[in-house]
Amino acid sequence: MECSFAITGKGYVIVAADTTAAHSIIKVKLDEDKIKTLSPHLLMAYSGEPGDTVQFAEYIERNIRLYQIRNTYPLRPSSAASWIRRALADSLRSRKPYSVNLLLGGYDTSTYTPHLYWIDYLGTLTEVPFGAHGYGSYFALSLLDRYHDPEASLEEGLATLKRCIDEVSKRLLVAPGRYKVKVVDKDGVREVEI
């Protein structure tokens, strides 16, 4: 089943999402990238109803890009989070709501601080030091309560993330096999291997 995690540390946010594309009980793809790069310092992991997810993520991606083209500067993470939340909240009370859960990780280049936002399909928005979606969240959140350190270096942060992934692989019956991990910090977005 779909799992995504994200943790903040000293000057960075790590976002991880599994890479399986599932159709009921069948895995149809094993290397799907479910983390979009919305702007040079903004990452969004998305999960939920297949179809809705890609449609909504692309809609957000293009609109964030449009803002950057019009205004020269991209939206800051907090503003992007508010705008995305509003899109989901409006969608919730429409005829066919998007069923998409998000983790939005960004680095604010004006205040030099990392930010992580937990957003669900209802339009619930909250800033968190670490967050997760899917069945993996039941394991990851309790592990992170114990091991998360907001002042941790990137290496320590990746080690903590590895613990979460390993625990989910060990204890969750429907654990995903592979994950894609991306980091956003002052230098922008990059993919890392774990």
């Binding site: 937990w118 669900d120 619930t124 909250t126 800033e127 968190v128 967050g131 969240s137 039941y138 959140l141």
Partner: peptide
């Protein structure tokens, strides 16, 4: 608290 049913998500909502 902010939770999703019995799962707590945030302690600063």
């Amino acid at each position: 608290r902010l939770g999703v049913q019995s799962l707590s998500i945030s302690s600063n909502f």
